[in-house]
Amino acid sequence: MSAALFFEQLLNGLQFGLMLFLMSAGLTLVFGVMGLINLAHGSLYMLGAFFCAAAASATGNFWLGLIAGTAAAAAAGALIETAILRRLYTRDHLDQVLATYALILILTEGTKIVFGPFPLYLNTPTLLQGTVNLGLTEYPLYRLALIGFGLAVALGLSLLITRTRLGIRIRAGENDREMIAALGVNIRALYTLVFALGAGLAGLAGALVGAVQAVQVGMGEPVLILAFVVIVIGGIGSIKGAMVGALLVGIIDTMGRFLLPRAFGLFLDPSQATVVGAALASMLIYLLMALILVLRPQGLFPAHA
């Protein structure tokens, strides 16, 4: 195994992790502020990808698609929050689980009715096609751009939370809901805004990833489950935790898929090693989650320590 291959895999893990971060950040924010578990977060990711693909093919411009996908997911989020989820903040988690599970069924089937059962086409923008030479290896430019995008969004989000008035309210909301209502903050509008922000992040992730993956019905749920793992590892409600968790999951998953079959190849015959290695690699991040639960049940960065 060459250093170049190892380096390339590390970049792949980083890129995967940053996309997971976009998904997890919204989820963890919504839980931190409103105490809501949203299973339909994966459906918002799917909506982002579908609207991006549809708008990009209608206008011929990927960037317009990206804006449309993000906006559509944010708008859908705001709509869902005001029409349905708002009524559930005071209910127990079971009602939230059922309602958002119902939303998965509705959004999945609704997307199929609107866009048809076949996967949509979404290409990378011409500006970001091809590869760049990173010295050690060639690397696709678009993936490099995804890394840049992910880092930029993470930075923007942390500035938003620490430096702006909205951020102060979000942090206040995480700590004491009654308090900020007493301070005269319009809590309903704040909740809608936070939910739309989380939905927009999921939609952005779906649109960005949709350019290199299949844009198809049901694409959101596998990512949703990974985002859950990220949040459990990072600590619920913590943006920093989501970042660390996402990078851990992204890099360990990528490296596991790459290294485990080779490791088993040392003492098993090759075709058996690939099967056993692949089976174990698919369980690796869940084992990581179990380990974290044993060591730090509240995650690496508990928000309400």
């Binding site: 369980m283 869940y286 989650m289």
Partner: peptide
């Protein structure tokens, strides 16, 4: 059960998914 509430929902889902992938 080392955790509660929303954690519990996500963790049980994740472990079930691990069994599924296996």
């Amino acid at each position: 059960l080392r955790t509660t509430g929303i954690f519990f929902i996500m963790i049980t889902l994740a472990f079930a998914q691990m069994v599924y992938y296996f």
